[in-house]
Amino acid sequence: MNVAWWTTSHTVMAALLIGFAIAHSGLAALRPWGEGLIGARLYRVGFALVSIPFATVLIIYFFNHRYDGATLWQVQGVAGVQATVWILSAISFLFLYPATFNLLEIAAIAKPEVHLYETGIIRITRHPQMVGQVIWCIAHTLWLGTTFTLVTSLGLIAHHVFAVWHGDYRLAQKYGEAFIAARDRTSVIPFRAILDGRQTLHLKEFLKPAYLGVSAFIALLWWGHPWLMVMTAKVPW
């Protein structure tokens, strides 16, 4: 590609993102067949053994190449920007990780199921992971301002936008009319269903250990962020 700012790392990251999207969404699509073949728990273990290492590679590669390519803007010295980025990042994790509350199912201790939720954060948006990813991408693209970060963010957002359609499709296949009714009472765009009267927030629904765990994770990430940068830099990618 004859573009001055497009480095080899841009190509590698784009390929990694495409590979992860195919693996993650492909395994999700094959879930009914796979669970019928080897059982729900074993399929979940296989899913994790593919997705977690792949995601770890993506994260390390992003950390190590985040300043590659051209610098589109530089706002790291502007007052208030760092605080804004940290606040947006914290909000993004509140959307990203409580999207799935059944930790025992994630770990395959309990039998993994496909659930139809309509409470808690789902009242705000039916696809909180997509919303959280978009917020994370906006925050980090603002902070880093490089073409590598922009390419990474656009790839992540594209995958999650596809996942919105794919997730709704799989829920419709499993739940039929029950999902259609739930879809009509919720929205993809944050707070839209609340603003037009289809949903009402119930704050007690947010009093769950998952939110406490995410809050602790955000605090740990803030504390350990410099150490994380040092450790990933030791990986020769």
Rank of each mutant, 00 (worst) to 15 (best):
R185A: 10
I180C: 05
D196S: 06
F191H: 04
H166A: 04
I180K: 15
A178Y: 07
D196I: 05
T186M: 14
G176I: 08
I180N: 12
A182G: 08
R170N: 06
L171A: 04
A182Q: 12
R185P: 00
A193H: 09
V161E: 06
I189E: 00
L195F: 14
V164E: 00
F179K: 08
D184I: 08
E177K: 13
R183L: 02
A172H: 13
V161R: 07
K174F: 07
H166I: 01
V161N: 04
T186G: 04
A182S: 15
V164I: 14
V161P: 00
D196K: 08
A181F: 11
A172Q: 12
F191D: 00
Q173E: 15
G197E: 11
R183Q: 05
D196Y: 06
Y175N: 02
R185K: 14
A181G: 05
A182P: 03
H159Q: 03
Y169L: 03
A181M: 10
A182R: 14
G167M: 14
H159R: 02
Q173H: 14
I194F: 09
R185Q: 11
L195G: 04
W165L: 00
R185S: 07
I194Y: 07
A193V: 09
F162H: 02
I180Q: 14
W165H: 03
A181W: 12
A172D: 07
E177L: 12
H160T: 01
I180G: 06
G197D: 12
E177I: 11
I180D: 12
A163K: 08
P190S: 01
A178M: 09
G197K: 13
R192S: 07
G176E: 06
A178H: 11
A178C: 04
R192M: 11
A172F: 10
P190H: 03
